[in-house]
Amino acid sequence: MANQTSKNIRLGAMVIAGTALLIIALYVIGDKQNLFGSTFRISAYFQNVNGLMVGHNVRFDGIDVGTVKNIEIINDTTVKVDMAIELESQKFIHKNALASIGTDGLMGNKLVNITPTGVPSPQVEEGDILKTSEPLEADDALRTLTQTNADIAVIVSNLRTFTDQMSSPNSVWSVLTDTAASENIKAILVNIKQTSSYTALVAAELNAIVSDVQSGKGTLGALITDSTIATELNQTAANIQLISDSLVYFTADLQSISDRLLSGEGTLSTLLNDTTLAVNLTETIQSARNGASDFEESMKALQDNFLVRHYFKKKNKMLEKERKHID
């Protein structure tokens, strides 16, 4: 009998575990769908609910706060959607919040989104009716698309006339289709290509030179960068020009002089070539020196002469006065 009891206990444990699991699962699922717990009801009038069904979620700020409880058609343009919202969320939802119908993900379930407007307003109460913002409707999108299509049709017809004109023989198209022209253009292009490659080389070299010059490398660089040198050099060059011009004449004169000298023409040539003249000149100089000493003696004698003695005395006194004054 004890054996039977222990079997029954084990059996009972299993049955309780099974039923408890079932009840817990049912409760959790019900809780997710807001079947239990305190809720309050609010409604919203939509023009189109886009396939929303009873049991779909209601989201506030992206959080599941309730479920759709009832959907009924009020009239041809109004559908009333009743929502059961958790009581805990009541304090966050305001009367001016907007309800809209959205989709969970790209192809998920439909849901009602409640979006706060940010404008202060009292909190929502049981039985309140929220304003709605209409979801994007495929019909509206199609209507816009129809208009777009009509516009595109006009544009395409314009484009067609344009292309027709383009392809007529007397148009730009004939130039484009002319093979000779294209050959010429090709040749031109080849030339342009070569020229441009040479130009590029030259430009590169020029560039190197210019950069050297700019950095002051070489004479030219120095010349260009130093402005004083440049002006001086300019003057120097001008002077050199003048000198060299004069030199030409001078050398020419020198040439003729030396020629005449060599040929014994003129006074200087005579002087250079005649030895007797030199002797005479020496004697002349000697006699001139003698004459000068004679003149000195004559002058001394003259100073003592009474006619002019007074002048010389006066002169000496003045000299002496000047000397004292300086001391």
Binding site: Q4, K7, N8, R10, L11, M14, V15
Partner: peptide, 13 residues
């Protein structure tokens, strides 16, 4: 009932 429990034990547990 006793037989039922016995069977439950064999069948279930």
């Amino acid at each position: 009932f006793a037989e039922f429990l016995r069977q439950c034990f064999f069948i279930g547990y």
